[in-house]
């Protein structure tokens, strides 16, 4: 396995150390280690079933809701192992937000969708300003500023997904995990999301799972390539700068995948 090469030597925000992920007795993802750089977009790519989403969800303990899930190794968030017994996952999820594959706004008003996360996390202050700030950051404000009290479900798919991003931003996270955020959207809405990610990466660390290689090549700074081994367990093949992965991959399997020979 290749060790990640830091393009810029910042201390990593997230560092996975010898992590193995299990569902019951099945080892879903084999031993991997990687360091996520701050204020960059890190893409996780690979064929279906290689455990990309499982890896992503292990970064904010969303896998906890799968009863049989467990993890070996440690995932450090600013040098704190988030799987340590004294860590409350609720706090972790407040710092590491998540955007899901299918837009899943709450069946509430647009305003309430954005404000709810802040409210339940005990954030105080001018909620109207917070909602506007989050919607502006998500490039949705101009489209919804006059219909804030309308149901979020009345928005288009692309708008709903940007609302979900605004909702995550309103909690003021440091990291945003995105699980194939554009796979349910049309190409134009997809491009909007990618532009948005680029803007957000100035202030946030973004980790995105995608099975769209063009998306990874266009929108990310770092890329981790996962695939399956003969036991159907996920393994990390290569982790490097996106430009290197897509031009001069070091591993034959990476090259086969990005040139479309399999997967």
């Amino acid at each position: 396995m290749q060790q990640a090469i830091d393009p810029i030597n910042h201390p990593p925000v997230i560092e996975a150390q010898d992590v193995q992920l299990y569902y019951g007795n099945f080892r879903a993802v084999k031993d991997f280690s990687l360091k996520v750089q701050p204020r960059m977009i890190t893409a996780i790519i690979g064929p279906s079933g290689c455990g990309k989403s499982t890896v992503l969800r292990s970064f904010n303990r969303m896998n906890d809701f799968v009863p049989s899930f467990h993890l070996d190794g440690s995932i450090l968030y600013h040098d704190q192992n988030i799987y340590a017994p004294e860590v409350d996952p609720v706090l972790i999820r407040g710092r590491i937000g998540m955007v899901f594959q299918k837009p899943n706004p709450f069946p509430k008003s647009i305003y309430d969708n954005v404000a709810w996360g802040a409210k339940i996390n005990g954030m105080r202050g001018n909620m109207d300003d917070l909602v506007e700030e989050a919607l502006r950051k998500a490039a949705l404000w101009d489209e919804v500023k006059d219909i804030l009290r309308n149901s979020a479900l009345s928005l288009s798919g692309g708008q709903q997904q940007r609302l979900c991003i605004a909702r995550a931003l309103a909690v003021r996270p440091e990291i945003i995990l995105m699980d194939e955020p554009a796979s349910a959207l049309d190409p134009i809405a997809t491009l909007k999301i990618e532009d948005l990610m680029r803007e957000l990466s100035e202030n946030y660390t973004i980790i995105i799972v995608t099975h769209n290689m063009q998306q990874a090549a266009r929108a990310s700074d770092m890329t981790a390539f996962f695939t399956m081994d003969e036991d159907r367990a996920g393994i990390m093949v290569e982790y490097d700068q996106t430009s290197k992965i897509f031009t001069t991959p070091r591993d034959q399997r990476t090259e086969d995948y990005i040139t479309g020979r399999y997967g």
Binding site: G97, F100, R167, A168
Partner: peptide
Amino acid sequence: VPGSLREAAYGLGAT
């Protein structure tokens, strides 16, 4: 109740 609704809430740091 769709699981996506629960995930959305948990993902925002809800208990």
